[in-house]
């Protein structure tokens, strides 16, 4: 496993685009999630100019245990940047035809796919580590009366976050292998949510029960939007087992389709 991961990392770590895109991803992710309080303060000061008073400390955005769901929900939006890197990494193998040479050199097709999947796992793990550190640091700074028992009560969201990233990257890898051209893959990837939205809107009245089973929908359902709770609305403040099960099935399906495609094609 380490052998295959080394192979893929050797391709990426001397590639400037990789560092630019992945660097951009982690910087944006870090800044956005860590700066929520500063944004609220700015909002409050603007509000004060117009005579309205916003008591930002009344909004427990960064308080344990709310912070887990709040930050992880926001982080989920940035996975598209990471997916672009996966698209570039896999479609490059086709444009340079290096996938062909990899196989000739003695990699099996399965091993080639695994080397890409392991990189996806690594990128997902790194995202989790990043968010874990930001949650810990900002949470400890902003939570007023810290109770240690609350610290890890909602850490389950981190697991859901891992699945969210990994499932999405698996979907990206599959698209890249099927389409093999970076431009088209990125367009289709970016439109996935919209295409699915149009389909969902049209079948809403007939088979509403089917909607949670859609791939993009189920990935979004892993971590539900948390903010309505601050205006006293009911939210889903847990990770539902059913959506985890659906996403797991999709993840297996995506990677299995990638496997079938790679197995059959002449490279």
């Amino acid at each position: 496993m380490l052998h295959l991961l080394t192979i893929d990392l050797k391709k990426l770590t001397s590639y400037r685009t990789f560092w630019v895109v992945v660097g951009l991803y982690f910087i944006t992710l870090g800044f956005t999630t860590a700066s929520g309080m500063e944004f609220l303060k700015w909002l409050a000061s603007k509000g004060a100019e117009f005579g309205s008073v916003i008591k930002i400390n009344r909004i427990p955005l960064y308080h344990f245990p709310d912070i887990w769901q709040n930050l992880i929900y926001i982080s989920g939006f940035f996975k598209l940047i990471l997916a672009f890197m996966v698209v570039i990494s896999v479609t490059n193998e086709f444009t340079y035809r290096t996938i062909r040479q990899n196989i000739i050199d003695g990699l099996s097709r399965t091993e080639f796919l695994l080397s890409k999947i392991f990189t996806n796992v690594l990128l997902s793990v790194l995202s989790c580590v990043m968010i874990f550190l930001i949650v810990m640091v900002t949470g400890l700074i902003y939570t007023p009366d810290l109770e240690l028992s609350y610290l890890f009560t909602d850490i389950g969201f981190l697991g859901a976050y891992f699945l969210e990233i990994f499932a999405f990257l698996s979907y990206t890898l599959m698209l890249g292998l099927l389409i093999q051209r970076s431009g088209l893959t990125i367009v289709i990837l970016s439109l996935s949510f919209m295409i699915e939205f149009i389909i969902k809107a049209n079948i809403d009245d007939y088979v509403a029960w089917a909607i949670p089973f859609f791939p993009m929908e189920s990935i979004s359902n892993l971590v539900a939007i948390p903010f309505p709770r601050y205006v006293f609305q009911e939210i889903q403040d847990y990770v539902s087992i059913s959506s985890v099960a659906i996403v797991l099935c999709w993840t297996v399906a995506f990677n299995y389709l990638s496997y079938l495609k790679l197995k059959k094609s002449d490279l």
């Binding site: 052998h3 001397s14 590639y15 400037r16 490059n92 340079y96 290096t98 050199d105 990699l107």
Partner: peptide
């Protein structure tokens, strides 16, 4: 067939690893 952005040395390292 090689990775154009890698040096000759790095390309051979990759081949050797595979």
């Amino acid at each position: 067939i090689f990775y154009p952005y890698l040096s000759g040395q790095k390309n051979l390292e990759l081949n050797a690893t595979i």
